[in-house]
């Protein structure tokens, strides 16, 4: 049994590595095959914005192309990128904030995104499972039917649309939440209660844009799973034995829905990250999403690659960890 489990883990790990390398390579070539280069674009922008009467000197263009490896051919760029990444964990200099390393910008933005996204995913997943279980359990009540309709509607609303609605209602009509930003400029940054409350207060609307949509999505799938399980013989037997509802739900129903729900979470992580990028832009939230938007506008290869590699790493790692957890959740996999 131990050998089987070990084989399972090794197989999953190699698969994880292969998917990571293929995704990285695909994105590198996709990005680098887009016609044009950031240096030429930037020089044009410079000339247009600053009204330079004379074109920027060839020396500047040459120097920048060298700094970003744009003077080499595509394959040489790819191998040197891989080498740099694997040996030194170096993503190269950023273009939007040259000469700051791209990784530094990502590191600065990362905690904001993880804080917001982590909380939103955990809350929406937990809440969705709880609500879905209740809806499934009390499926014939009027309240459950109403909640189902509401959930069906809300789960299909794009997060960015919900974000706009929340801003309009809570910031402009009711005036109780700020329209964006991560904290108030009136409060000094630091590890103190006032600042922490302010951070939570500013994160509330962006988090709710994600939580509302994903909670209802999880709720609907959980309801369907619960209803399915309720028809099983072992549930009827447990009921006939006179088991209390609480015990029945926690031991027999919830446990059996956890595996598909965990898989569902793993699969939906990519979509959640996608939606999150737009949310950060709408709320002017200083995370990875906003940085990604900036990097796209200026074709900052290194920042784009850095964010994508990091996102791929985290999504794939989360999937990998979830797969590692399967044997714990479902003993059948261990056998």
């Amino acid at each position: 049994m131990k050998n089987k489990l070990l084989r399972y883990l090794i197989r999953r790990f190699f698969l994880y590595l292969i998917i990571f390398l293929i995704s990285l390579t695909a994105f590198f070539f996709f990005l680098n095959l887009v016609p044009g280069d950031p240096v030429t674009r930037y020089v044009q922008e410079l000339e247009a914005r600053y009204g330079l009467a004379t074109p920027v000197s060839e020396e500047i263009i040459k120097e920048y192309k060298e700094a970003f490896g744009l003077d080499k051919n595509l394959f040489a760029r790819y191998t040197s990128y891989l080498k740099r990444l694997v040996l030194n964990f170096d993503f190269g200099p950023s273009f939007v904030a040259f000469p700051t390393p791209a990784f530094q910008l990502i590191l600065d933005a990362f905690p904001w995104s993880i804080g917001l996204l982590g909380v939103a995913v955990i809350v929406s997943w937990t809440l969705g499972i709880l609500l879905g279980t209740i809806l499934g359990w009390k499926r014939e009540s009027k309240g459950a039917s109403f909640a189902l309709v509401l959930g069906l509607i809300l789960s299909q609303v794009p997060t960015y649309l919900l974000a706009l609605i929340l801003v309009m209602v809570f910031s402009f009509v009711l005036g109780i939440f700020p329209m964006g930003g991560a904290y108030s400029p009136l409060i000094e940054k630091g590890f103190n209660l006032r600042y922490i409350i302010d951070l939570l207060y500013h994160a509330f609307l962006p988090a709710m844009s994600l939580i509302l949509v994903y909670t209802f999505g999880t709720m609907i799938s959980q309801r369907a799973l619960v209803i399915n399980i309720l028809g099983e013989d072992y549930i009827k037997l447990a009921e006939a034995k006179g088991l209390k509802s609480n015990r029945l739900i926690s031991r027999y129903i919830l446990r059996n829905t956890l595996l598909p729900q965990t898989t569902g979470l793993a699969l939906s992580l990519g979509f959640i990250v996608n939606g999150f990028f737009l949310i950060e832009w709408i709320f002017n939230y200083p995370g990875i999403g906003r940085l990604f938007m900036t990097a796209i506008r200026q074709m900052d290869y290194n920042v784009l690659m850095g964010i994508t590699v990091n996102t791929m790493f985290w999504v794939l790692t989360a999937n990998f960890i979830i797969e590692l957890l399967y044997p714990l959740i479902d003993p059948r996999i261990r056998r």
Partner: peptide
């Protein structure tokens, strides 16, 4: 219990927000 806790947290946050006179955009 979790549901109740979330509800209470949301209410506290709402009261907190009401106690701070905010404009949609805050300036220093």
């Amino acid at each position: 219990k979790i549901l109740r806790a979330i509800l209470v947290f949301s209410l506290i946050l709402s009261f907190l927000s009401l106690s701070i006179p905010v404009m949609a955009q805050e300036y220093p």
